[in-house]
């Protein structure tokens, strides 16, 4: 997991501070937590910093967050290195995370990875020379119904095949609009070919009355009355 090693000194920026908007957002986030518990904001602030740093978290950014939250820097490093969604070295514009956990793997995750490697000419954990793509494998992203799937930056792309994967990479590289979610035209996580259950409007729920003298009406009658 080379992704978890910090970037070499040469790549680490000297300093980091939030942009004006970022600083304002940071204050909003800090204000969510009770007084004296501001350190709880460390994860959202690191996320904010990662977004401002182009998808990765330099040490200077962690230092800045530590300063904002009056934490010892090492406590922030601990958090930043613990969570795999914080990238400790620079990543491409598009961070391709291929899910490799069992459902995706059974549905062809290995082929997706192979396609990416071939198409981009990089190995896992590497970034293309033009700085467009970084390829990593990750564990379950929780969209198993539409396996196999990948995550690119914040978005999921599901129901992929090697062909769809290639097209997606082409589209991303060209900066074309891509639709997120299922690439096979599925809506949400409906079954392939459209829904097969819950096709008629269900009965409304039984309305219970607290008036014990009156017998409860059958749902059908109640619906008629309404």
């Amino acid at each position: 997991m080379s992704q978890r090693e910090p970037a070499p000194e040469a790549l680490q920026p000297e300093s980091f501070t939030f942009s004006e908007a970022g600083a304002k957002r940071a204050q909003q986030i800090i204000a969510r937590y009770p007084k004296g518990r501001q350190q709880s904001a460390v994860i959202p602030l690191l996320d904010l910093a990662q977004r401002e740093c182009g998808g990765w978290l330099p040490r200077a950014a962690m230092d800045h967050v530590a300063e904002l939250l009056s934490m010892p820097p090492i406590r922030v490093y601990e958090v930043g290195t613990f969570y795999t969604m914080f990238n400790l070295k620079p990543v491409g514009k598009h961070l391709i995370q291929v899910c490799r956990t069992t459902p995706c793997w059974l549905r062809g995750a290995d082929e997706l990875t192979a396609t990416c490697r071939k198409k981009l000419g990089i190995e896992l954990g590497e970034t293309t020379a033009d700085g467009q793509f970084t390829l990593v494998e990750v564990e379950c992203l929780g969209a198993c119904v539409n396996a196999p799937m990948i995550q690119v930056n914040d978005d999921y792309y599901e129901d992929l095949t090697p062909e769809l994967m290639e097209r997606l990479i082409d589209d991303l590289a060209a900066g074309r609009d891509v639709s997120i979610g299922s690439q096979a035209g599925r809506r949400g996580s409906e079954p392939e070919g459209g829904p097969i259950t819950l096709q008629e409007v269900p009965d409304p729920p039984v309305v219970k009355t607290l008036d014990f003298d009156k017998p409860a009406e059958a749902p059908a009658e109640a619906a008629e009355k309404a």
Partner: peptide, 19 residues
Amino acid sequence: VPELGATGRGEEMEITTYI
């Protein structure tokens, strides 16, 4: 003087100053 910490997780956990 909190300067040591445990970075990483699981098998990659290390005791370090990080800097």
